[in-house]
Amino acid sequence: MNAQRLRGLIRKEFLQILRDPSAIAIAFVMPVLLLFLFGYGVSLDARQVPVAVVVDQPTGETSAFIGGLRQSPYFSPTLYPDIAAARRAVMARQADGILWLRSNFSRQLLSGQTASAGALVNGVDANNARILEGYLQGVWQTWLQLRAQAAGTALIIPVIPQDRIWFNPALRSRDYLVPGLIAVIMTLIGALLTALVVAREWERGTMEALMASPVTMGEILLGKLIPYFLMGMGGMALSVAMAVWLFAVPLEGSLWALTLASALFLLVALGMGLLISTLAKNQFVAAQVAIIVTFLPAFILSGFIFDIQSMPQAIQVITHIVAARYFVFILQTIFLAGDVWPVILGNAGALLIMAVLFLGITWRKSRKRLD
């Protein structure tokens, strides 16, 4: 390894980056665009859900209950004259559910009997249906408690849960999704940054000139890895800044732990990109393979959106070879819980093994030969 030749290769790569700004766009523009699109477009929170309300016999009690529904930020209730009209609204996707207060609702309530409210939920979107059902139960429980307090009586419930939400007390899905989104984005960016560089050298014929020079293959790989590693860390810093200051995601852990974990993961992503680029020798093929092999598994199998424990056992085993899985766990822990070292060190160790594996295979496959 010659330090002077290595400095020359690094300088050459930086000059190439300045002449071809596509790498700058991948490292700095793409994270901003993807974070904007996914950060604002992907949400598991239900807000202002349209609900059809049917009241067979309006009374003071039904008006009070509907008033509580209107005060909730989760619902946008609309009154319908009868249940048939409400059903048509659900069929036309004008409402996601029906709240039906039958004619005996107030009579049962005032006589001390158990009053029931009918809730019909559109189950086409199962996740949204479960969220809507839980919100309706919450509004119903809150209204009963307020009514009991106003009457000066105690609300008799066999079990009163006392909830405490750890790490995300506001229950904002964005606080959970944005750290995972950073991992998915950095997987794509890291792989694309290096997936194109070696293939570009082969396509332009400059790889033959490099092989005819005294530089070793290790110097060539390092000369390409170091500049894009620095650019990738810059893109990671930009993504973290957007998460904290734009999306208001709390950062409970330390910056140095986040930096070290990000550096390890970026080495894995860059190693995958270099391996793809070394084997493909064509920019178009390298870009397609990078998206299929890195981005799609990271999006689906990393736990970013879909819970890994809910997947079939065979798929859970496959997720262990997806590097983004470990980085998602690290980011969500550092952002929301803090420096929980058993989680951080265990997943960082897996990333270190994968980085050594991919970079080692790339070095073994790279030879100063034209075949």
Rank of each mutant, 00 (worst) to 15 (best):
G112C: 05
A115N: 03
L260Y: 04
N2Y: 03
Y40N: 15
E208R: 12
T319P: 01
V197S: 15
S103G: 11
I185N: 00
I24F: 08
V340W: 10
L101P: 09
V42R: 01
L196S: 01
A117Y: 06
V317L: 12
A348I: 02
F327E: 08
V215K: 07
I321G: 13
Q57S: 14
S22D: 08
R5G: 08
I292Y: 09
K365M: 10
V54M: 08
F284E: 05
I83A: 09
Y228W: 02
V49A: 12
V197E: 13
L255H: 10
A119G: 01
T142Y: 07
A150D: 15
I157T: 15
L274R: 09
L260V: 14
I226W: 11
A195I: 07
L345C: 02
A170S: 14
T194A: 09
N122W: 05
S254E: 14
L301M: 12
Y74W: 12
N122L: 01
L370H: 12
L255C: 07
L146V: 15
Y40S: 12
V178Y: 04
W245E: 05
A119I: 14
S262D: 00
N127E: 12
L37M: 15
A117R: 03
G218I: 01
L136R: 01
R93I: 07
S72C: 10
N347V: 09
A199S: 15
L357W: 09
V184T: 05
V356I: 14
M30E: 03
V29F: 13
A261N: 14
A23F: 11
Q283R: 10
V51F: 03
G60Q: 15
P73T: 05
L33G: 10
P50F: 06
L260D: 04
A243S: 13
D96V: 06
M207G: 04
G68D: 11
M211T: 05
Q141C: 02
S173E: 06
L69M: 14
A195C: 10
G123P: 01
L279N: 07
D339M: 05
A85S: 15
F65P: 04
L181I: 09
A85K: 13
A237S: 11
